[in-house]
């Protein structure tokens, strides 16, 4: 089982820091004219809690993520709250993207998106890959998809 590039944890962490700051800011806007002043401002508490949750979550999330190219299918495992295992047979692969969004470019990462004709097709994506690895996987999957397509003429 292949794991994601550890750098993705930094990205997830950064996202939760931003979320914590945003939430703390929103809470800080609320009127503070209560009779009893809390010892610590509420926004600080919110910031701390969200951050701790974010740290724990990204750790578990990273641990849960894994994928593998098997004999006849791509196998993907992820999810902390809902644990998901997906099997995408090569025959079903319609096309494959390697993608780099702004955040991914900034962090030097890329993701792989596998499309099938299934109703949840676009769901199958693997984040946190190095650009080289993403391109490599894309090429590999393309070959496997074509190989299987040649032997079995059935798209849907």
């Amino acid at each position: 089982m292949e794991q994601l590039n550890p750098r993705i944890r930094t990205v997830w962490l950064a996202v939760s820091v931003v979320a914590a700051v945003a939430l703390a800011y929103v809470v800080g806007l609320a009127p503070t004219e209560t009779a009893v002043q809390p010892p610590v401002p509420l926004s600080v508490v919110v910031f701390g809690v969200v951050l701790v949750v974010g740290v724990v979550y990204q750790y578990l999330r990273y641990k849960a993520w894994g994928f593998e190219i098997q004999d006849d299918a791509v196998y993907i495992e992820h999810g902390v709250v809902v644990r998901v295992k997906k099997v995408v047979p090569f025959v079903r692969v319609q096309h494959i993207d390697s993608r780099r969004g702004p955040v991914e470019r900034a962090s030097g990462l890329a993701s792989l998106v596998i499309y099938t004709a299934g109703s949840r097709g676009a769901d199958v994506s693997v984040p946190g890959l190095t650009p080289e690895r993403a391109d490599e996987l894309r090429e590999r999957l393309r070959e496997l998809a074509i190989e299987n397509e040649e032997s079995i003429e059935d798209a849907v």
Binding site: V81, V82, V84, K85, K86, R92, G118
Partner: peptide
């Protein structure tokens, strides 16, 4: 007709 198989389990 199976496109992909998804196994999931909540906490």
């Amino acid at each position: 007709r199976v496109q992909n198989v998804i196994e999931s389990a909540t906490v």
